[in-house]
Nucleic acid binder design. Structure first.
Length: 567
RNA sequence: CGGGAUGUGGCUCAGCUUGGUAGAGCGCCUGGUUCGGGACCAGGAGGCCGCAGGUUCAAAUCCUGUCAUCCCGACCA
């Protein structure tokens, strides 16, 4: 491809709408343009990258037994009524009507559609397992689209759905996908981590997320430095034996006057009691019922864990006025002693003694509080967020934190959708059974953005070789010099003939402009043709990710490029 | 949906407080000089100042409404 022919409008300045690196660079380098919030046009360079990602995904899906199909974007309401998700998905779905006033949705995901499809045409266990996938635009009317391609309202996703005869079959399909996903991220050449994930209200028992590691990632991940354990903080287990047991004797409960002291820090200062000897009491409304969640003073509540423990559908922090009425004190003065609602305590708290807490009376606290003697817990559960330094739940190692971008997510769905959609087959005993399903997504466009978040410098993008829009860029310093132009053409032809994707910057621009653009769009390998080196029958080569360039004999160019690209 | 901010040529922004009919840099076009890290000189094109009302002799500027975009939060297979 000749740069003079390529549509890649680069920008010198950062468009003001872009906050994060991938958004800024993809805009500046002429990969994407915004149409409306969360909706983008992919220009030629982006299209090339997306295709490469898609092809790697496609190959691995096929290798794992997947078969590609394409499902419609427009889906009728009835399908979604069947699964109950028309209202459940609610606002997040783009909805539209036709001229007959029939209602439709732009597909945010395709479980309903594919379950219907498979149910219509697979009637026997002999047709299973069946793995079908597509790479397609998805539509979600995000409350707040942001970060460019990271959280768009229209995005490209690969979604595969597995259909099996039973749970054992699902396990096999799930493992296949798990492995295929690892292959994919290896091949994309991205640093990533697989983590245990919360499967959400709708998911099944098991779920893993694939995280591309990047400082700007939205998700927090904990991982063990010794073993393979890794999990989304939402999910990370804080096991019992992490709790520091205190061996001291129980001391008598004491009520202390603490005028105006509300926060944990206030008590640290006022009473000289460390955070780790205090507890905090958080009030929640769970499906309308007021409950108390209790944690050590320095810990953070994990709402997802609490929600799962309570098996609540709706959970939000209680209104202070309500709390005051029922408990007799405001937020800063609460405690479990005499608390008139159900008390859920964190595992760690169960191991503490002689701690301090609010007395359910403004301006008073208790010290030397002890579980069972002074109050009883309705349940003890893992409720807090893991933090760096926690003991690994699987081994003797310690946990560390890192940030990541969720680019893949796999779920065991079980029979949730097949039951809702009444999708069945006959097993080998002639019994009617529900399909046992799994679903497996990869955010293709998000993966492109994540690759940028992970690979850039002050000059622009540094594409990993497997997904670079071009592998090599040839820059003749001055295209008006006949010998440079001729050499550029010659190398371009030769490299192209050798199956290498080359961009020839044949524009009549100054060298600086061409270098800047080459760096910005992130082509991994640059070949510079200048008059001095040309006289010595050499060209200059530079790897985008390295600082120094090096000279190569013209005869050796093909071989050198080959070595670098195909390693 | 709450809180905050912003809408002025393709991009980044100034002008708005104290109304008098629009500017800079970059980009773009033409000519010339340049030519290994976003050149220089000269000339030029391009904006009913997001939109709709209102106040006023007069509105980019003041007022009201509205739309859009961005950030924080709530939300989130």
């Amino acid at each position: 491809m000749k740069a003079s022919q390529l549509f890649y409008p680069t920008l010198r300045e950062v468009p003001s709408e872009a906050e994060i690196v991938s958004h800024q660079l993809l805009l500046r380098a002429g990969f994407i343009r915004k149409n409306t919030a969360g909706v983008y046009t992919y220009l030629p360079l982006a299209r090339r990258v997306l295709r490469k990602i898609e092809n790697i995904v496609r190959e691995e899906m096929d290798k794992a037994g997947g078969q590609e199909i394409v499902m419609p974007i427009i889906q009728p309401r009835e399908l979604w009524d069947k699964s109950g998700r028309w209202s459940l998905y609610g606002e997040e779905m783009f909805k539209l009507g036709d001229r007959h006033k029939r209602e439709f949705a732009l597909g945010p995901t395709h479980e309903e559609l594919i379950t219907t499809l498979v149910n219509a045409d697979v009637h026997s266990y002999k047709g299973l397992p069946l793995l079908l996938y597509q790479i397609q635009n998805k539509y979600r009317d995000e409350i707040r689209p942001r970060f460019g391609l990271m959280r768009g309202r229209e995005f490209i996703m690969k979604d595969l759905y597995s259909f099996d005869v039973d749970d054992a079959g699902l396990d096999v399909s799930y493992q296949k996908m798990h492995k295929a996903y690892q292959q994919i991220y290896e091949r994309l050449n991205l640093k990533y981590r697989v983590v245990q994930a919360d499967s959400g209200a709708i998911g099944g028992k098991e779920s893993h997320e694939f995280m591309v590691l990047a400082a700007s990632g939205e998700s927090e991940i904990v991982y063990c430095t010794l073993c393979d354990y890794a999990a989304n903080v939402e999910k990370a287990v804080c096991s019992v034996d992490q709790a520091v047991r205190t061996e001291e004797e129980s001391r008598p409960l004491t009520k202390v006057h603490t005028p105006g002291q509300k926060t944990i820090n206030d008590i640290v200062e006022f009473l000289g009691i460390p955070k780790t000897k205090q507890i905090k009491t958080l009030m929640y409304s769970a499906d309308g019922e007021l409950i108390a969640a209790i944690l050590r003073g320095d810990r953070e509540l994990n709402e997802i864990k609490l929600k799962n423990t309570l098996q609540a559908n709706e959970l939000f922090m209680a209104d202070e006025a309500v709390v005051k009425e029922i408990c007799g004190a405001g937020f800063g003065s609460l405690g479990p002693v005499g608390m008139p609602v159900r008390i859920y305590i964190d595992l760690e708290v169960a191991a503490m003694n002689n701690f301090a807490c609010g007395a359910n009376e403004d301006d008073y606290h208790f010290t030397n509080v002890n579980l069972d003697r002074d109050f009883t817990a309705y349940a003890v559960a893992d409720l807090r967020n893991a933090v760096a330094g926690d003991k690994c739940p699987c081994c003797e190692g310690n946990l560390q934190m890192i940030r990541g971008i969720e680019v893949g997510h796999i779920f065991k769905l079980g029979t949730r959708y097949s039951q809702a959609m009444q999708a069945t087959f006959l097993d080998d005993k002639g019994q009617e059974q529900f399909f046992v399903m799994g679903c497996y997504g990869i955010g293709v466009s998000r993966t492109m953005a994540a690759a940028v978040e992970q690979n850039y410098d002050e000059n622009g993008i540094i594409w990993p070789l497997p997904i670079a829009p071009f592998q090599v860029i040839i820059v003749p310093v001055n295209i008006n010099q006949a010998d440079q132009k001729a050499m550029a053409e010659q190398l371009y032809q030769q490299l192209t003939a050798n199956g290498i994707e080359v961009l020839l910057d044949d524009r009549d621009e100054r060298a600086g402009v061409k270098f800047k653009d080459a760096d910005l769009i992130g082509i991994p390998l640059r070949i510079t043709i200048g008059s001095k080196t040309l006289q010595e029958n050499k060209v200059e080569m530079k790897k985008r990710w390295e600082k120094e360039s090096f000279l190569v004999d013209i005869d050796a160019v093909i071989g050198t490029v080959h070595d670098i690209i195909f390693k």
